[in-house]
Amino acid sequence: MTDEQPQPAVLDSPSPDARRWAMFAHLAGFAGYLFPFVGNLIAPLLVWQLKKDSDPFVDDQGKEALNFQISVSLAAILSFMLMVVLVGFVLIAVVVAGAVVLMIIAAIKVNEGKAYRYPFCWRIIK
């Protein structure tokens, strides 16, 4: 008898359909620019709820996109409150620019079939 360590399961690459829906979940955050404070939360939530049962990759990335949009919304609210002392104007610009860049990076990565984790994200939904 040998003491062999079990090998990790080899994960298959997500299907093109799963990659597409995961990409839509990340890009859905741009709806917040059309409908401020609700679009960026509702759109990823809808994509995730509609497609989470179709593929584990879509479920994982839908939760990640929604958690990121919740974090961005909280940061934006804090920035608006800090506009009273003027520092909020700079902070909101940083939040918006960072969110745009990170959503595009996430969409590109998941379209390549790689799971993406946002930095500085509060993961409320597990």
Rank of each mutant, 00 (worst) to 15 (best):
V90F: 04
V90K: 02
V90D: 05
V90N: 00
V90Q: 06
L91A: 02
L91R: 02
L91Y: 04
L91F: 00
L91P: 03
L91D: 04
L91H: 02
I92N: 05
I92F: 04
I92C: 01
A93P: 07
V94G: 00
V94R: 03
V94S: 02
V95W: 01
V95H: 02
V95E: 00
V95S: 01
V95L: 02
V96E: 01
V96L: 09
V96T: 13
V96A: 06
A97M: 09
A97Y: 07
G98I: 08
G98L: 01
A99I: 11
A99Q: 05
A99E: 03
V100K: 11
V100T: 12
V100D: 01
V101C: 14
V101F: 13
L102K: 09
L102I: 10
L102E: 05
L102T: 10
M103A: 09
M103S: 10
I104A: 12
I104W: 08
I104R: 15
I105Y: 00
A106I: 04
A106S: 10
A106K: 05
A106Y: 04
A106R: 05
A107H: 04
A107P: 03
A107W: 00
I108T: 14
I108A: 09
K109Y: 05
K109E: 15
K109M: 14
V110S: 00
N111T: 15
E112Y: 13
E112D: 15
E112N: 15
E112P: 14
E112S: 15
G113R: 00
G113L: 05
G113M: 07
G113K: 01
K114H: 13
K114D: 13
K114T: 08
A115T: 08
A115D: 12
A115E: 14
A115I: 10
Y116N: 03
Y116D: 04
R117Q: 15
R117A: 09
R117P: 15
Y118R: 06
Y118K: 07
Y118Q: 01
Y118D: 00
P119L: 05
P119N: 04
P119V: 03
P119R: 09
P119C: 02
P119I: 07
F120K: 13
F120M: 11
F120L: 12
F120Y: 10
C121Q: 07
W122K: 12
W122V: 12
W122H: 10
R123E: 15
R123P: 13
R123T: 15
R123G: 11
I124L: 15
I124M: 11
I124H: 10
I125R: 11
